[in-house]
Amino acid sequence: MKIQGKMFAGFALFILVMAVIYGLWSKEPAGTTALVLAFCLCTMIGFYLAFTARRADNGAQDRDDADVADDAGELGFFSPHSWQPLALGVGGSMAFLGIIFGWWLLFFSLPVILVGVYGWVFEYYRGEDRTQ
């Protein structure tokens, strides 16, 4: 994570320099604001990665003597049969179409989004643990 934090910090510095140059050269506020916001986002992500890297153990990407195989293994659990991302995608698409065609479409997209979020959060919930 240390490498990624340094990469985002360098990218944030580059964006800041470009924002200053763009702002002075073009005198256009929308693009300058977008670049400043991109700088803030990269700074936030870089700070988070550097902050987390100090508390987590070193990964294979942080060691100079590591091989590619050192990072192999289980990365976590990913649901193989979940339909909830599809519901969230359809609901999000309907919400963005509501911005284009009319705000009334948001009333139809909000229940789809809420069902998708509820289903994703409680997908593997089986009740209280009653092993006593």
Rank of each mutant, 00 (worst) to 15 (best):
F108T: 09
D57T: 05
D67Y: 07
M94Q: 02
G119K: 05
A53V: 01
L75E: 12
P29L: 08
V20S: 13
Y48T: 02
D70S: 06
V68R: 07
L105R: 06
F51K: 06
D70H: 07
A50V: 02
F101M: 13
P29K: 02
L106S: 07
F77C: 03
T43N: 05
L105T: 03
F101Q: 09
G89Y: 09
C40Y: 06
G91H: 08
L114C: 14
V112P: 00
F107I: 08
G76K: 08
T131R: 11
P29V: 03
I3S: 11
Y125W: 06
T43E: 12
P29G: 06
A87G: 05
F101N: 14
L24I: 09
L97W: 08
A95K: 02
D71H: 07
V17T: 10
G76T: 09
R54W: 02
L35S: 02
P85Q: 01
R55D: 11
G23I: 04
D71W: 02
E74H: 07
D64V: 06
R54S: 10
G23D: 14
C42A: 15
Q132F: 05
L37G: 09
A60Q: 06
F77K: 12
Q4H: 07
F11K: 00
T33C: 11
A9T: 05
A87Q: 00
G59D: 15
L86H: 12
A95W: 14
S79D: 12
W25Y: 12
R54L: 09
L13S: 08
N58C: 01
Y118P: 11
G119F: 00
D70T: 03
A12G: 15
W83K: 11
F101V: 04
S93G: 15
M94P: 05
E123M: 01
M94T: 02
L75M: 12
V20L: 14
R126Y: 02
H81D: 15
L110G: 05
I15T: 12
L75Q: 07
L97S: 13
F47Y: 11
G119H: 04
Q84R: 01
R126C: 08
D71Q: 10
G76F: 03
V36S: 12
G46K: 01
E74P: 09
A72P: 00
A30C: 01
D67C: 01
